[in-house]
Design a protein around this nucleic acid. Structure first.
Lengths: 339, 339
DNA sequence: ATTAGCACTCGATAAAGGAGAGTGCTAACA
DNA sequence: TGTTAGCACTCTCCTTTATCGAGTGCTAAT
């Protein structure tokens, strides 16, 4: 693959990304100043097609990049653009701890990301498994009902409502809360299971049943449900893409995004750090075969705690999207630290 | 408007609702056993068109109901169908207090409603203004940060994170929580403002600043933000309607539904009780001119506390949708009582 | 190795030609 | 007088045909 071939491929991909129209030899030769004639470009294009990097929608149309072509572009041709300073300032400003809660900050980020890129943003919120308990409280409301409130050291609050037996009186609630706090305070959520629960059991034998219940519920509500919440931004941006003018495609993709589980699957694919680009069928889900996904991870105190993704058509402004995403990720990490 | 005209109109509307195709005189005469010839039906149809109840998409096509036609149908022709018992049982079963929290129950209802009707369900959750405070607590997390937790008598929990001055120590938090509880417990949220806050101020003069802050924040987070939350179900059902095969229409409607404020406007239109049907341009929003909205209210302890809506095309199965909605509303009211 | 020239391909767009569903009108009928 | 059969007419939808033009691949000249 000589230099000129690379230039031709690069030009075709850039042009197609910008226009969504198949690109002809004439356009390339003229617009991108290759200094050769269209005929020469045609020869190169024929070669590139043979190599599997380009495709022809039909005989005698221009060329469009193949999935492999995009792959080559992302891996070896793409130039990382510097973000304009005003965009940088805008992102920094928006995320600079105006918000006091992790989840709100993440929601804001997803909105921002989708607006800046014009694609769909997917963000997986951090797991709270490593956060420690600040306070837990059992509180009676109405008959037979109580709420459990769990406050973590980072200010995150979870709660759920449970049924409790009649015979518990206010003092019982206080007592249970007290013991739960004593035993669990300062412990990370992921440390709850093994040793600790048993010792609480023994301490509260006479109320074993209710407590058993509670611990089960806490586990469920924290570990399964609310862990790894997912936030979406700009789902309707799909409508702007010409490759999604077919209503069934749009419907398919939106249905897919409606299920939080799907999004977790999409994002959780790898736990590798750094920016990853998955193009077309490189994505596991069938419904995403015309899409590309760019993911990266964000961190807190040196540890990876979540994933950010941008979902767009394979004909995507990779370079711009990556720049924005990486910068926003940094700003988010910063924002989370200052929260 | 004689009996036969009504029969013809009714038949046309039912047929059009079922098929989405303009209806011809032949179809009506045959399929709906009017006992007259197509020619006679044609005469009636011409009269009905003159009255503004029918329209012709173009000369020599069949007729379709006009907006006025639907109006007449809903007001005077529509027969309320009894819901099949298995559907009734299904709704009752689903909403029978498997869920312990108001908002979860409402979310479930919206999902159910959209699945049963194949339209989009909109539900406005109750305002908590009349609920009384069960417990309020100020809790320090990390430096300079505290969470305020508010638990209502119905088990609803709200929380928000606030910044607090350095000089407060744990005892201060306890003291403030204590006083807040003492003064506010048992009071409905809507009663907070006037008299009470002043007396709290005086009691806590020396910490006036922080308390001031807190009360402001509580007011904001409860009254403005989380009050009247809105739940959507089946937004993608729009895609099933042939009148929304145009991608721009879908986009327009989905964008409209993306904004919670819009939905509040849509639902809040009237505070009248009972079922209301708004057809086409009877809806205030421009983007809904091809849609109909059926709303009804649900209650708790005899008081109206929220609104339920079904959004579909003007060519909607009004009868079925109303039956389902009204029954589900009853079941929801029941479910809320048992929560 | 590059390029000009040229015939050829194939989608997109427009124009033309039925086919069919449904109407409105007229005249006959009970 | 209300109802109906008959019939010409209208208008959309679908298919067919023609034209256009962008872009290619090949060949031969440079």
């Amino acid at each position: 693959m000589d230099g000129r071939k690379r230039k031709v491929l690069h030009a075709i991909i850039l042009d197609y990304i910008a226009t969504a129209d198949p690109v002809g030899s004439r356009t390339i030769a003229k617009k991108y100043n290759l200094g050769v004639s269209p005929a020469t470009v045609r020869n190169e294009m024929a070669d590139l097609e043979e190599m599997g990097l380009l495709e022809q929608p039909y005989t005698s149309a221009g060329r469009i990049p193949s999935q492999l072509g995009y792959r080559y572009y992302v891996d070896s041709l793409m130039i990382r653009e510097a973000l304009p300073p005003e965009i940088k300032e805008m992102i920094r400003g928006a995320l600079r701890s105006r918000v006091k809660e992790t989840e709100s900050l993440i929601q804001l980020s997803s909105k921002l990301l989708s607006q800046l890129t014009n694609y769909t943003a997917l963000i997986m919120a951090p797991s709270y498994a490593k956060n420690t308990l600040r306070h837990i409280q059992l509180l009676a409301v109405e008959e037979n009902k109580a709420v459990i409130i769990v406050v973590l050291d980072n200010g995150h609050v979870e709660h759920c409502t449970v049924e409790v037996p009649d015979y518990l009186n206010p003092e019982d609630f206080t007592a249970i809360s007290h013991i739960l706090n004593e035993r669990l305070q300062g412990l990370a959520l992921e440390q709850w299971k093994p040793s600790v629960l048993k010792s609480i059991y023994s301490e509260l034998k006479y109320k074993k049943k209710v407590l058993n219940n509670i611990i089960e519920i806490i586990e469920n509500s924290l570990a399964v449900d609310h862990d790894n919440k997912v936030f979406l931004g700009g789902t309707l941006n799909i409508f702007n893409q010409p490759e999604f003018k077919d209503i069934n495609k749009v419907k398919g993709l939106l249905s897919l995004l409606e299920e939080a589980e799907n999004i977790k699957d999409i994002l959780q694919g790898e736990n590798t750090e750094g920016t990853i680009v998955k193009i077309g069928t490189e994505n596991a889900l069938e419904g995403m075969k015309d899409c590309s996904l760019i993911t990266t991870t964000y961190e807190l105190e040196g540890e990876t705690i979540g994933t950010i993704g941008i979902l767009g058509p394979t004909r995507m402004e990779y370079s711009k999207a990556i720049s924005i995403m990486e910068f926003l990720t940094k700003a988010l990490t910063e924002g989370l630290r200052n929260i």
